[in-house]
Amino acid sequence: MTESLDSERMACWRAYIEASQRLFTQLEDDLRADGGLSFADYHVLVLLSEAPGQRLRMGELAARLVFSPSRLTYQISTMQRRGLVARQSCPGDRRGSEAVLTAAGLLALREAAPGHLASVRRHLMDDLDDVEVATLTRVFDRLGRRLRADRDASSTHRDT
Rank of each mutant, 00 (worst) to 15 (best):
R122E: 08
Q75W: 00
G144N: 11
W13Y: 11
A63Q: 15
G115H: 13
G92P: 11
T160K: 06
E132Q: 15
R57Y: 03
F140T: 07
L61D: 03
A118H: 09
Y16L: 14
G36D: 05
A15Q: 15
G36S: 05
R55Y: 03
T78C: 10
V139W: 05
L48P: 00
V46S: 08
D150R: 10
E111Y: 08
A103G: 09
I76C: 02
T25Y: 06
A11V: 12
A104C: 08
T25K: 07
R158C: 08
L27T: 01
S154C: 07
F39S: 08
L84M: 05
L143E: 06
S70G: 14
T25G: 04
L56Y: 03
P52I: 04
G59K: 02
V131L: 14
Q80G: 04
Y74C: 11
C90Q: 14
P69C: 06
L84R: 00
T2I: 12
T2K: 07
M79V: 04
V46P: 03
A51F: 03
I76A: 01
R81N: 10
A103P: 08
L56F: 04
Q26A: 14
M79H: 04
D152G: 05
T78A: 10
E50H: 04
P69W: 04
A15C: 09
A15Y: 03
I17D: 10
E111S: 12
L101K: 02
L48D: 00
D127R: 10
A149D: 10
S119I: 06
A33T: 14
T135R: 12
D152T: 11
H43P: 06
D141M: 15
V139H: 05
P52M: 05
V131A: 15
G36C: 04
R64A: 11
V120K: 03
V85Q: 02
A86F: 01
R9S: 09
H157P: 06
H123F: 07
Q75H: 10
V100M: 02
T25N: 06
Y16M: 13
V85H: 01
P91F: 13
Q21A: 12
V139D: 01
R146W: 12
M79W: 06
G36H: 08
L72R: 07
R148I: 02
R81S: 11
L31I: 02
S154T: 10
T78F: 07
D30G: 03
T156Y: 09
S97R: 13
Q26R: 14
S77P: 00
R142W: 15
V46H: 05
G59A: 09
V131H: 09
D34P: 05
H43T: 01
V133Q: 09
C90L: 14
E8N: 10
G35R: 04
A118K: 10
E132K: 07
S119G: 04
E18M: 11
M10L: 14
P69E: 08
V85W: 02
D6E: 09
L5R: 11
Q88S: 05
A153I: 06
R148K: 10
G36T: 03
P52G: 01
G144E: 09
H123Q: 10
Y74N: 14
H157G: 06
S7D: 12
A15K: 13
V139Q: 04
S38E: 07
M10T: 09
E8M: 08
L45N: 00
L107M: 07
E132Y: 05
M125G: 08
V100L: 04
S7A: 13
G144Y: 15
A149Y: 14
